[in-house]
Amino acid sequence: MKFASLDQFLSEGKTALAKGPLALVFAEDPVELDTTIRHHLDAGFPQLALFAPDAFVLPAELEAKIHRIPYDVDTVEALVEAVNKVIAAAPGIWLYYCYNAEYLFHPFCETRNIREMLAFQTEERRDALLSYVVDLYADDLNDFPNAVSLERAHLDKSGYYALGRPDLSNNGYPKDRQLDFFGGLRWRFEEHIPVPRRKIDRIALFRTKPGLVLRPDFTLSDEEYNTYACPWHHNITTAIVSFRTAKALRSNAGSRFDIQDFKWHNSTPFTWHSQQLMDLGLMEPGQWF
């Protein structure tokens, strides 16, 4: 269904907002927009809303399966504003957001859908999941100048690390069960990445509630939502494999001519399988065996 505005979607999109889980896809450009939508529908999201300019064309059969809202995603703040409006309009549902050319993976997603995982997470009394945004990039920038190729996608198999997240309200002591994660292209080419955008963790899948607010650093106003695990054992984490950083580094004039290749000795082909992400420590099944 097509809506004239975000406000109309929030007032009339009862089907999407009533139950969830609801996926929000924000299109910064048309690159791999159709595959992004198909991936998340196949993952088991019963409802998906696309925020994109009208100029971005989709196949008719795909348009029929989604809710479409005209929207310019020109800044992170634009995404945050839209997500927060959806949170306020639809309390109590599981909500997910991502950009185009980003693909959510959860443990065992080849045989278990997103609704099954969220049912288990609910039984664990957890209202959010930590996602690692794992950079993907094409293996040859001469063949793929925008660094995007699903068939020849690569990722870094090492070079990831975490630092304690300081609590500025408590003399800078680390927050309980919260870490800032780094790695991938944002780490290897950090001189081209603003400091606030270097971390790769994102709370992208969570249960909405009254008063909850998404912040520009992709954390939420309820600090328990930002934890990687509960106090008593490990919990599920997810991964969002993403061409977004590679695309930005290739389109930005300040970095495009400084980077001839994204491949290095720790690059490996991405198999598009959850087991690879778990083997690399980029996703955690927790107690969900």
Rank of each mutant, 00 (worst) to 15 (best):
residue 1 M to H: 14
residue 4 A to Y: 10
residue 7 D to L: 09
residue 18 A to H: 15
residue 25 V to F: 08
residue 28 E to Y: 06
residue 40 H to R: 02
residue 41 L to C: 09
residue 43 A to K: 07
residue 45 F to P: 07
residue 55 A to W: 13
residue 69 I to S: 02
residue 70 P to R: 07
residue 75 T to K: 10
residue 76 V to N: 14
residue 77 E to H: 10
residue 83 V to Y: 00
residue 90 A to S: 07
residue 91 P to R: 05
residue 92 G to V: 09
residue 93 I to D: 02
residue 101 A to R: 12
residue 102 E to Q: 13
residue 105 F to D: 05
residue 109 C to E: 04
residue 113 N to I: 02
residue 118 L to S: 00
residue 120 F to Y: 14
residue 122 T to E: 12
residue 128 A to V: 01
residue 131 S to A: 14
residue 136 L to Q: 04
residue 147 A to D: 03
residue 153 A to E: 00
residue 159 G to L: 03
residue 160 Y to H: 09
residue 170 N to L: 14
residue 171 N to C: 12
residue 173 Y to L: 12
residue 181 F to I: 09
residue 181 F to C: 11
residue 183 G to I: 11
residue 183 G to R: 03
residue 186 R to E: 01
residue 189 F to A: 06
residue 190 E to I: 03
residue 195 V to N: 05
residue 197 R to P: 00
residue 198 R to G: 06
residue 202 R to P: 00
residue 202 R to N: 00
residue 204 A to W: 00
residue 216 P to K: 03
residue 225 Y to R: 12
residue 229 A to V: 09
residue 235 N to L: 02
residue 238 T to M: 06
residue 241 V to S: 03
residue 243 F to L: 04
residue 244 R to T: 05
residue 244 R to M: 03
residue 248 A to D: 07
residue 248 A to T: 10
residue 251 S to H: 06
residue 255 S to L: 02
residue 269 P to E: 07
residue 271 T to F: 02
residue 276 Q to G: 04
residue 278 M to W: 09
residue 281 G to P: 01
residue 287 Q to D: 10
